[in-house]
Every structure is written in structure tokens, then in C-alpha cells.
């Protein structure tokens, strides 16, 4: 066991866990920040995507040891104080989520893109988002919501 000082969502947290414990379990089971999800444990699905110093990272493969020297960790709970990030608003406007389990990770991944590239092309979005799985198949709407949040007019469903 060791004590780690973490900087999460603007607050300092102290946590006693075994060395090498994954940041995902620390966030979820020890700190109760359950918006970050467990999906695969091997960085293949993106359900656990968080930001470390603004970069999208997969918490499931990050030992807590590696993020306890002042790195700024942001989870979905800390993305926006009121939950009003333009992506969160766009996710509601476009009615993206179905089961919703992957969506924290999707939004965190997308937020990191827009922070660096406020006006990404479709290809840039697809490339950036390709590591995040959605089993309900909401990809079309995720794409649309990111384009919407980026201020782009997007074609709506043309069926009737």
C-alpha cells in the first residue's frame, strides 16, 4: 500500500492503494467518480477516457503511480461545472446516447479534439474518435454532435 496525491477535477485527493492499481479503479471504486466506465481493461474501447493534462488517456491502463506527481486529471464529472460543455449540449440536442455507457468516454475524447482543433473535418473527427467503441451504434449521431458543437451546419436525417 502507498499513499498517492491526485489532482482531480481541480481538487486534491489523497488515496491509499496498492502500487500499480489502475487509475480507473481509483477513480471509480475508491473516489466514486463512476462516470468513467470500465469496458475492456486493455485500452481497446475508450469507455474510460479521461484527460491527463488535457490529453485524452485510457484510465484503465494507467497505474495510479504515474499520475500522482501533479498531473491534472479531468473526468466527465469535471469537464464542465454545470454539465454545459458545448459537446454535452450537442449530445442532448442531437439525442446521441442510447444505453449511454460509452458516452462519457466519447465526450471526453471529443472534448480533447475540439480543444486543439475547434473546427475539425469529418475525417479528422473519425480518425480521432476511432478508438471509442459504441455497441448501440450511435456513431452517426456522435459525429453529428461533434460537428454541431464545432459550429458546423450538418445535414439532418433526410428520411421522413
Amino acid at each position: 500500500m502507498a499513499t498517492y496525491q491526485l489532482h482531480i477535477n481541480g481538487a486534491k485527493k489523497s488515496i491509499d492503494v496498492a502500487e500499480g492499481t489502475s487509475l480507473l479503479w481509483v477513480l471509480r471504486e475508491h473516489l466514486g467518480l463512476t462516470g468513467t466506465k470500465y469496458g475492456c481493461g486493455i485500452a481497446q474501447c475508450g469507455a474510460c477516457t479521461i484527460h491527463v493534462n488535457g490529453n485524452p488517456m485510457k484510465a484503465c491502463v494507467m497505474p495510479v503511480d504515474g499520475v500522482s506527481s501533479g498531473q491534472k486529471i479531468t473526468t466527465i464529472e469535471g469537464l464542465d461545472d454545470l454539465g454545459n460543455h458545448p459537446l454535452q449540449q450537442a449530445w442532448i440536442d442531437v439525442q446521441v446516447p442510447q444505453c449511454g455507457y460509452c458516452q462519457s468516454g466519447q465526450i471526453m475524447q471529443a472534448a480533447a479534439l475540439l480543444a486543439n482543433n475547434p473546427s475539425p473535418s469529418r475525417d479528422e473527427i473519425v480518425t480521432h474518435m476511432n478508438g471509442n467503441l459504441c455497441r448501440c451504434g450511435t456513431y452517426m449521431r456522435i459525429l453529428k454532435a461533434i460537428q454541431k458543437a464545432a459550429g458546423k451546419e450538418v445535414a439532418v436525417n433526410e428520411g421522413d
Binding site: G35, T36, K37, E77, W91, I92, P97, S104
Partner: peptide, 27 residues
């Protein structure tokens, strides 16, 4: 109608069974 479950599914607050944490809970 806007889906009632969607806002909570954009901010991490929607509770799935895997998110349940109770006092004294074992694994």
C-alpha cells in the same frame, strides 16, 4: 420528446449497476 435519460448520460451521473457503491461493500 427529448429522452428523459439523456442529460444524465452526458455528465456521468446516470447510474448503472456497476456504479453502485454502498457502505462496507465487498467485491
Amino acid at each position: 420528446l427529448p429522452r428523459t435519460d439523456i442529460p444524465a448520460k452526458t455528465n456521468g451521473s446516470a447510474q448503472f449497476a456497476i456504479d453502485v457503491i454502498l457502505p462496507g461493500m465487498l467485491y
